[in-house]
């Protein structure tokens, strides 16, 4: 564990907490894409199947359980909690997210490090995570009023990926066998998707204005 990875995990955790705070205490999911949340639930469910087969550390297992639990509870909240569901921007959140799943699965079947069940699902989760933010970014662009919590959520999520890139660079130089092209490229693609958002987020922060993305 290095400082970049820990900071990345903590940023990821913070993003989830911000979202849960919004949904649980304010009882609103305005501006939050259910499509993205459903994709994340699939990402974690397919990536963390190894909690049944391998043990790394208590930290690792706990974090996996937190990400699994939070992603599924966010989806359930948005779908079935009356008040939360009412605030959902259903008409705006129209990205055809299921069309992302099949190509990612096919790609994982074609390009992977080892052809085993867990390994292919792990790889699938990496590809799907790379594009899972797209419905959320599209929704942000359509939403005229982005509240602070939603902006912070996306900012923290992008920050987590950025920190993981620093972690991979660090590990590449400090651990002799650490070469994982699939993880790196999908992580890089994912981070690049946030570039535009980061630009407007920093602008709004600098000018102390409300975050608004151009249509």
């Amino acid at each position: 564990m290095n400082i970049f990875r820990l900071a990345g995990d903590m940023t990821h955790l913070a993003s989830v907490l911000v979202l849960l705070l919004k949904i649980h205490t304010i009882k609103s999911c305005a501006g939050v894409s259910l499509k993205t949340q459903e994709l994340y639930a699939i990402v974690f469910a397919t990536r963390y199947l190894d909690i049944f087969t391998s043990f790394y550390s208590i930290y690792n297992t706990l974090m996996k359980l937190v990400f699994l639990g939070s992603s599924f509870s966010i989806v359930l909240y948005m779908k079935y909690h009356k008040t939360v569901h009412r605030s959902y921007d259903r008409e705006q959140d129209t990205f055809r997210h299921w069309f992302l799943v099949l190509p990612c699965l096919l790609l994982a079947l074609l390009i992977h490090e080892k052809f085993t069940f867990l390994e292919v699902l792990w790889t699938f989760s990496l590809y799907l995570e790379a594009v899972a933010i797209l419905p959320q970014l599209v929704l942000l662009q359509r939403t005229r009023n982005i509240d602070n919590l939603t902006g912070q959520y996306v900012f923290l999520l992008g920050g987590y990926r950025g920190l993981y890139i620093l972690n991979w660079i660090y590990r590449y130089f400090t651990e002799p066998h650490f070469v994982h092209w699939i993880t790196w490229i999908s992580g890089l693609v994912q981070t690049l998707l946030y570039a535009d958002f980061f630009f407007y987020y920093s602008q709004s922060w600098k000018n102390n204005k409300k975050l608004q993305l151009p249509a």
Partner: peptide
């Protein structure tokens, strides 16, 4: 060659 594969990351 050791069967090195790293899944310790989240």
């Amino acid at each position: 060659e050791e069967d090195y594969f790293d899944h310790d990351e989240l």
